[in-house]
């Protein structure tokens, strides 16, 4: 179970691969609004802007970026809903 420290339990995964800027962020925002505080949402994006945009939005919106992972051909950003 040591993996849980780097790969937290994900409440919901959004596969936004193939969606163009700002689609993945918009899908993430929708999921955060629908979720509960403490939920961990992973968003998969092939849009090159997401790995820069999503962390900026997360900070501004008062949530927490748990991690940004480079996968094969896409990025996966994991966010905890904080409010």
């Amino acid at each position: 179970m040591t993996e849980t420290t780097t790969e937290p339990t994900i409440t919901r995964t959004i596969d936004a691969r193939g969606s163009f800027c700002p689609g993945p962020l918009m899908e993430l925002i929708r999921a955060i609004r629908e979720g509960q505080v403490g939920d961990v949402i992973a968003v998969r994006s092939s849009d090159r802007g997401s790995k820069v945009d999503i962390p900026k939005w997360v900070e501004k919106a008062g949530h927490r970026l748990i991690g940004a992972f480079e996968r094969e051909g896409y990025d996966e950003l994991v966010v905890e809903k904080r409010r």
């Binding site: 700002p22 962020l25 939005w57 501004k60």
Partner: peptide, 11 residues
């Protein structure tokens, strides 16, 4: 539309 969406996302 993209500029609008980004601004709306930031509140």
């Amino acid at each position: 539309a993209v500029l609008t969406a980004g601004a709306a996302a930031l509140g």
